[in-house]
Amino acid sequence: MAAYVLRRLLLAAPVLFGATLIAFTLGVVAPGDPAAGALMQSGFDAPTQAEIAAMRTELGLDRPLPVQYVSWLGNVLTGDFGTSIYTDRSVSEEFARRLPTTLALAASALVLAILIGLPSGLAMGYWAQSFGDRAGRVVALALLSVPGFWLALMLILVFAETLRWLPTSGLGSWRHMILPALVLSTGMAALLMRLSRAVMLEALAGAHITAARARGLAEIRVVLIHALKGAAAPLITVIGGYFGAILGGSVIVEVIFAIPGIGQYAVEGIFRRDYPVIQGYVLFTAAVYVVFNLAADVACFVVNPQLRLGARVA
């Protein structure tokens, strides 16, 4: 077990390394001179060439790119993502402050998506080609095709402004979370519906299902244990991956519902050309994504005896 987790961690390292490269490159290719920007920020309206050159030296921007990267990477590894150009506050502290909000939103969306997508998809797979299955497939495809931001605005129009059942935006009670979580979960619920349907279909087609039925086993046991236990691994992998996708999707939902999470912070950073914030966002979401994929891998490892025993033998 420990060895397996360690091996997975070793595989995750290059991905995170790649993420730092991309984040660093973004800072380099970004339009505008950071030195001039920093000077303007601190009150110099029209900095001279000499002042800019001095600032470049002070910020270390005159060093070769690899050197800059290594020193930047050193800071990142110690948890220092730099300070926001705009607010002059530590980026990592701001992310840490906002993360619980986004995580709560993402987690509620994930739970909703699983509650909606998994049972309906499994039922569609079991009763494949029935009326319910056909209808469910169209619904899933429609949910997959709805632009999330538009759905959010329409839901606000109907449930918050016209019917006045739910608050339009902001944070507070659990009722504030309903609409954002619902919007955030739609695409994932649809994907999960399609996937679990396919998984159920494939699992039931196995020769071992006929064999289990021929032994007279109860149908519920055949479906839940013999078909689904083996099919759990792909579902877990995908659900783990979805969590990362939700983080990306949370940006729009946070903007529309005015939720102070990391997505909103990132968008603010983008419009203020606040590059440390953008870089921090890239690194942060990459890290969360990698962690959840890793967790999903470990969960697969636990449910799959072949992996478990194979690792012991090897």
Partner: peptide, 24 residues
């Protein structure tokens, strides 16, 4: 294959946003 694994291991939507945002 290494590059594919790298890009698949990263959250696409977040990166899409960051890249588009940085480039203006």
């Amino acid at each position: 294959e290494g590059l594919v694994l790298l890009f698949q291991g990263l959250p696409g939507l977040s990166f899409m946003l960051a890249i588009a945002g940085t480039l203006g």
